[in-house]
């Protein structure tokens, strides 16, 4: 299996303070990786080094074998889907125009963009009638679905998500999370998702990378990590989903 994303001794320093220690990470094609950790752990910084939203202080990032330093930022980012908590839909554009923004930047034919927009609305389970609406007329969940559709519009093979469900209520959150995992499998994506919610990470990801103080402190499958880990900080993080699961079993009497 080839690695879709390779981080080679990547580090980031802001004003002399190391936000990200030199880090190696290899993410194979098709994997769903969750980056977890407390705030200030460096997980968002790590995510943004992949699409160049954060410039590297040192090290190298390779996407499908090619070094990102050889590409200009906008070209790189048009090839990688990006979803984040605040969604950031353009309020002056309609839903269809928001979804079509990357294809437009890539110079697609208007007919092809329209066709793709219809396809994407169905894919993220939104009624086609929303296409002409402005973001202000949508619910929070609908907005984030548009955000996901926008990220997938130009058929990227990599999807980056930064706390994508953080602002949603729990019902909406679960439904959307399930859909994202379904899309990941259906479209054969390589997905990296930042979250502080271990339960969500355990539910969706093939692999969990735990970060603290700008370093990777654990990197394994959810199953292995939940079974127990030598690092007390990792153990502490894993307590929450374990307790939830135990309590559910207790209540349902299984």
């Amino acid at each position: 299996m080839t690695d879709a994303i390779v981080l080679d001794q990547v580090s980031k320093t802001y004003d002399g303070a190391a936000v990200l220690q030199p880090t190696d990470l290899f993410i194979p094609q098709g994997q769903f990786v969750a980056l977890v950790g407390g705030s200030g752990a460096g997980k968002t910084t790590l995510l943004k080094t992949i699409n160049g939203l954060v410039a590297l202080t040192a090290g190298r990032v390779r996407i499908d074998g090619a070094a990102t330093a050889d590409l200009d930022g906008p070209t790189l980012r048009r090839r990688i889907g990006y979803v984040f908590q605040e969604v950031g839909l353009f309020p002056h554009l309609t839903v269809a125009e928001n979804i079509g923004v990357v294809p437009t930047l890539l110079g697609w034919e208007p007919a092809r963009i329209a066709e793709r927009t219809t396809e994407l609305l169905a894919l993220v389970d939104l009624p086609a009638a929303l296409a002409a609406r402005r973001p202000a007329a949508l619910s929070g969940g609908q907005r984030q679905r548009v955000g996901v559709a926008r990220a997938l519009a130009a058929r990227p093979s990599i999807l980056l998500m930064d706390e994508p469900f953080g602002a949603l209520d729990s019902v909406t959150r679960v439904a959307l999370a399930d859909d994202v995992r379904r899309l990941h499998d259906q479209l054969d994506l390589t997905t990296v998702m930042v979250t502080h919610d271990i339960a969500e990470a355990a539910l969706l990801a093939d692999r969990i990378v735990v970060m603290a103080g700008g370093k990777v402190i654990a990197d394994d499958t959810p199953k292995t990590l939940l079974a127990g880990h030598a690092d007390p900080a990792v153990e502490a993080l894993m307590q929450a989903p374990r307790r939830q699961a135990a309590r559910v079993r207790e209540i349902t009497g299984e």
């Binding site: 699409n51 939203l53 930022g73 906008p74 070209t75 790189l76 980012r77 048009r78 090839r79 990006y82 984040f84 605040e86 969604v87 950031g88 839909l89 353009f90 309020p91 002056h92 923004v101 990357v102 930047l105 926008r150």
Partner: peptide, 24 residues
């Protein structure tokens, strides 16, 4: 958030100005 989204979808500085910031 809009500025980050504009950068995130791969707009150049000029595109961000003309398509995002100036209309807003």
């Amino acid at each position: 958030a809009i500025v980050e989204a504009a950068r995130g979808v791969g707009m150049t500085d000029r595109q961000r100005l003309w398509r995002g910031e100036l209309p807003l």
